[in-house]
């Protein structure tokens, strides 16, 4: 099939960028969306034009690297699917496809469809962990964990940190991402020890990165490739509320050494 692509091209972070139209010819339905872009890029390079820069790595929907908004929906709008797993059989011959990068102040565009998502890393660095050093940990079965708790924690932990939730949110809010990590750890006994400190530290970092706020539209949940539930945002709100009431935030995160 043949398609018309309108792709965001932007030389670097300071360039303004624009949509450029390309023809994608002889696309096979079994190709993934990124393989379709590979084909377009090969042709561009043959013509001496610089290929479209886009992030991808594992191409099996788990690393969270690939990130593009296809026709107004992050990852292309197939339920529970990253764009690398979105196949061309879901498009029709003659379709016009608009491809843009994630758009958020906290995710500046580096080039074309490539964005800088290090703000997510900084949120985790602020408190998205359990403060245990290597070694000296008790036996794995020392603390029984109810199966349902482990399952809920796993539902939250499935987040791949791709940032689609931010891209889809009308406010570019990172709440679903933060909620996933806070809930993952708060549902396990090992993570409960420092739950208050974690919630406050991560929210403070999230705020300082320039993400927007949650207005409960549900768009994040709808585009999340791992279908992380909006309920975790409720849990995050709960965790944060309890945390600021208890006011257990210490001056500085201790640990290390």
């Amino acid at each position: 099939m043949n398609l018309t692509l309108k792709v965001w091209r932007q030389k670097n972070a300071s360039d303004t960028g624009r949509l450029v139209t390309y023809e994608a010819k002889n696309i096979i339905p079994d190709m993934s969306f990124l393989e379709m872009l590979d084909v377009v890029n090969e042709e561009l390079m043959q013509k001496g034009e610089e290929p479209i820069a886009f992030d991808s790595d594992c191409r099996e929907g788990i690393c969270g690297t690939c990130s593009m908004v296809v026709n107004g929906t992050p990852h292309g709008g197939m339920k529970g699917t990253t764009v690398c797993q979105c196949h061309m059989r879901h498009f029709k011959d003659g379709d016009v496809i608009i491809i843009e990068p994630w758009r958020a102040r906290a995710f500046p565009v580096l080039r074309d469809l490539v964005t800088d998502r290090s703000s997510f890393d900084r949120i985790i660095q602020a408190g998205g962990f359990v403060s245990v050093n290597t070694g000296g940990t008790p036996d794995g079965n020392a603390i029984p964990v109810p199966k349902t708790d482990a399952d809920v924690a796993m539902d939250a932990a499935a987040c791949i940190g791709c940032g689609a939730c931010v891209a889809a949110c009308k406010n570019a809010s990172a709440m679903l991402f933060v909620a996933a990590k806070v809930s993952h750890l708060a549902n396990l006994p090992q993570g409960r020890v420092e739950r208050e400190r974690r919630a406050i530290a991560m929210i403070n970092q999230m705020d300082s990165e320039g993400f927007g706020n949650c207005t409960v539209t549900g768009s994040c949940e709808a585009v999340c490739p791992k279908e992380v539930s909006l309920d975790f945002i409720a849990q995050l709100n709960r965790e944060y509320g309890k945390a600021i009431l208890k006011n257990r935030m210490e001056r500085k995160l201790a640990g290390g050494g």
Partner: peptide, 25 residues
């Protein structure tokens, strides 16, 4: 804060499940 969080708008935007009410609060 929400407005500032997305300085460049999408050319094509599909609000998926976000209801009209939620977008016009």
């Amino acid at each position: 804060e929400n407005r500032a969080a997305r300085p460049v708008a999408y050319a094509e935007w599909n609000p998926t499940v976000a209801s009209y009410a939620s977008r016009t609060m």
